[in-house]
Design a binder for these strands. Structure first.
Lengths: 118, 118
DNA sequence: TAAGACGGGGATAAATTTATCCCCTATTGT
DNA sequence: ACAATAGGGGATAAATTTATCCCCGTCTTA
């Protein structure tokens, strides 16, 4: 893992959340795992814009932060499943609220985001 | 502004939200502005961990994304106030939910975040 | 007269995050 | 034999974000 040079700020709730939720694909990983897409290959198919490698890394971080657990079945070919922990499940409604806001304001967001590319 | 080389993914609500809310200090800026700390110097005092420069940049992005508006009073010494737009105000409950989750799980979060520094 | 408050921003460095590339095991299907 | 699927990870490059360092004004107060 990349070794941080600067300690994170952990002053308020928002800082704490940032530490575990920043990461381009993390919220979606949690969301899809919650929806029942528990295997790495399924997640990769659900999020084709991310490379396999990057998803692995973000999954590992989510695991280290105890939001998900990883179950490795000793079979061949290998089988792995991720599950939300009890802690991780408490985050689902929060992600739901965030995603809902994004969808409700989709047009407006598209327009303000794309302004700079015109 | 930094000129992006890669277009953002805007596939789902979460992507869209990320585009306007990623940024280390953005949620807090919105939150404090909503609480009535509208002037740059006040915001700098509320967020001493960020430099003046960085806050200015993030404020400008929030403004470009039309979450806040900037009012410049033609007086000396200069006076500037930021206000949430109607659009920005719709985001406050979302930030509230995020921050609340962080505070409710503060101890757990502190512990999982700090594991890697031990 | 010097310091501090108010505001702003260019140039550049450092930190961090994401992506790319390649290599590994074993089984099943064509 | 070869490709595809299942899984994993090291090394390194590229992109992006944050921070640092200076510089620019005016007014007020010690």
């Amino acid at each position: 893992m990349y070794e941080r040079k600067i300690l994170p700020n952990l002053n308020c709730g928002l800082d704490l959340v940032g530490e575990v939720l920043y990461g381009k694909w993390k919220m979606r990983l949690l969301w899809f795992i919650n929806e029942g897409h528990q295997r790495p290959s399924e997640l990769q198919r659900k999020i084709p814009d991310a490379t396999r490698r990057v998803l692995n890394i973000q999954l590992k971080e989510l695991e280290e932060h105890e939001l998900i657990s990883k179950e490795i079945y000793p079979v061949v070919p290998p089988k792995v499943e991720y599950h939300l922990t009890a802690f991780g499940r408490t985050l689902i409604p929060v992600i739901g609220v965030i995603g809902k806001w994004g969808e409700e304001h989709e047009e407006k967001l598209q327009s303000v985001i794309m302004k700079r590319y015109e």
